[in-house]
Nucleic acid binder design. Sequence first.
DNA 1: ACACACACCTAC
DNA 2: GCAGGTAGGTGTGTGT
Length: 810
Amino acid sequence: MLKVSFPTVQQLMEVKSDLMPAIERNQAKQAAAEAYETLQRSLNQGRDQHTRVQDYLDQIVEMREFDVPYHVRFAIDMDVRCGQWFTVSSDEGQMKMERRADILQRAELRICAFDIETTKLPLKFPDASYDQVMMISYMIDAQGYLIINREVVGEDIEDLEYTPKPEFPGPFKVFNVANERAVLRKWFDHMRELKPGVYVTYNGDFFDWPFIETRAKVHGMTMYDEIGFRHDAKAGECRSKCCCHLDAFAWVKRDSYLPQGSQGLKAVTKAKLGYDPLEVNPEDMVQFAIEQPQMMASYSVSDAVATYYLYMTYVHPFIFSLATIIPMPPDEVLRKGSGTLCEMLLMVQAFKANIVCPNKHLSSVEKIYNGHLLESETYIGGHVECLESGVFRSDIPTRFRLDPRGYEYLLDNLDRDLQYAITVEGKMELSSVLNYEEVKSEIKAKLEALRDTPNREECPLIYHLDVAAMYPNIILTNRLQPPSIVTDDVCAACDFNRPEKTCLRKLEWVWRGETFMATRSEYVHLKNQIESEQFPSLTDGGPPRFFRDLDSEQQSSKLKDRLKKYCQKVYKRVLDKPTTEHRIAGICMRENPFYVDTVKSFRDRRYEYKGLNKVWKGKLAAAKASGSQIKTQEAARSPLIGKPLELDTDGIWCALPGSFPENFTFKTSNEKKKSLTISYPCVMLNVDVARNNTNDQYQTLIDPVRHIYKTSSECSIEFEVDGPYKAMILPASKEEGGVIKKRYAVFNHDGTLAELKGFEVKRRGELKLIKVFQSEVFENFLGGTTLEECYDAVAAVANRWLDMLEDFTR
DNA sequence: ACACACACCTAC
DNA sequence: GCAGGTAGGTGTGTGT
């Protein structure tokens, strides 16, 4: 490997564009050579072929880390992060930054949350080309300001206060100015005077900033020249070089875990700040500004108050904490996807471990399966099942038809399970337990009673059992990481490859692919056909374009469209029924554990955080059960002992008979830990998981010089338990006996809602919109005196709505 | 009436 | 230039 560094990004790009074609050429050559070699081997004429290095350019087959943005590269290499303190010094122009790890206090930035109100036409969204800014409200360091456009607002507004909660004070100073131009002038001047370090908006990336920018232009001002912000329509964001713009809506979308139906500022305020904000129907705003200006003024500042305190309470601590570990500025930490953030963390760890990052994996195009073009291929994911519908209440007895064999099994394995709970989960000596027999006989008696009277009516115990951080723990238990997925030829070339080797772990998975109905030859025919066709020019009256002139994305979409139409015509359907295939993956247990170790350190941080969070909330549940995933076969036993209600991927909601053994406390002679509380239902699952999923082939390099590995057994896939609950409600489908997955409601014993999953109330509030539409159509329909007038009026409403929905969709 | 494709948005 | 994954419910449009 050759490392090349550049003083500027431009130089990097120049070299990259020189090298890229050569690399593509060399890769193609290499692929051809490999194919040729395989052929040679199969003809049993294999011979080493050494190429003489004539031109180094011919030898470059890959380029790495050329697409790392400059500021990310800098932050990683120099170990600089936003949100940390540094002592900065300069020695003859050479800058030095020294990290001040001793200062943990967050910097006190000047934060400005702002929000604009604009005019708008009935049932239209505000359009900056003709609508105006009515008011700008903003809060800086808990002091509010409101600029009023007196051309729109009916009267002068006096200073006011909007304090929705004592902890969220909102005193506002009001500036009444003559017109929109003066509003913008005042705001720009005030911002230049106060120089905020962070601007905060709610959806300002898409609305407030571009609106202000456009209106400023109308009045001959340039927002960029005034305060350094420019809206980038392509990226859909508004940013500046000199300070941050943190759009709280981006935090709500990615980090709040609120459903989309509750991501408006009003719903977020209710959910996160715990008060009911002022609400005004957007259709009434302009009228109110003219007729009830004081009320409109209060409303206007209420959004700025909500945005400011949402930011101060949630967004700021979250983003600036994340920024101390992610090598990006806060604006990007806020807006990037979780995949990019994870990649950044991996790149930091890779740099520290002197590992060169791999390039993004590209799946090959035009895969053929069984003589048909593959439309998509993937793996079978989590399993979901709903077994019951109806109401389950802990205070209303329900009929249990238990299977004595299930209880017999639990009794047979009671010692094993309890000992597992003590030694593995509790990490304690069995001999240190003082009341083992006592606990055991108590559980035994309960299990025997259930076994002996399996048909019984009892109040149910509604429990939820789920695996903590399941995917990371599957990864860690099995040492899964991209470079560890090996094929026979990889093993064949490995020094550790012996007949009795244990370093290759085999794991089953299920492949699923969907193919087009058309055969490969039909596909090839269609492709040849389309390649000779012409397509309309991009410009009016320009020359037609050939297929080869289209970019690769357009080509493949045009070809796919053609193929779909062909399949629909000839086969009456586009895709064949999906096919599945059981496959075995080989996992190398000796690959450098960089990814696995990194996942581990992040999982442990998550556990640490979750633990501290629990302590802080005073909710520390004593029973932190260890456990394991149930194999399908084993899961089948669980109906035998109670009623499974709903399963999804890593968790089970179930009803156990009221007399089922629950929590027990072992007393111990251990001075440091005098007792150990276990949840029997949890332990029972964890033993199964451990028995079926422990990796006995886990290998750790202990002597890098002599290549000696230590083999150990690992299983960190463990169930946690919560409950019992007061009630669970599972909806039924329209078909008799039909059940619905992923939708249920659960109540706590104090009557509060514990979980509400999947129901329409969590989705977008379109119903509301439809009702407004219906009432408007209704009104207009009645308004006419002839049928024609009625139809015309309704058509006018419909057209307005179509326009509006188009804006809305955009 | 029925299936299929697709959009949208949720659970995990 | 950027984009985590699969499973599943509901509603609409379309073709047979």
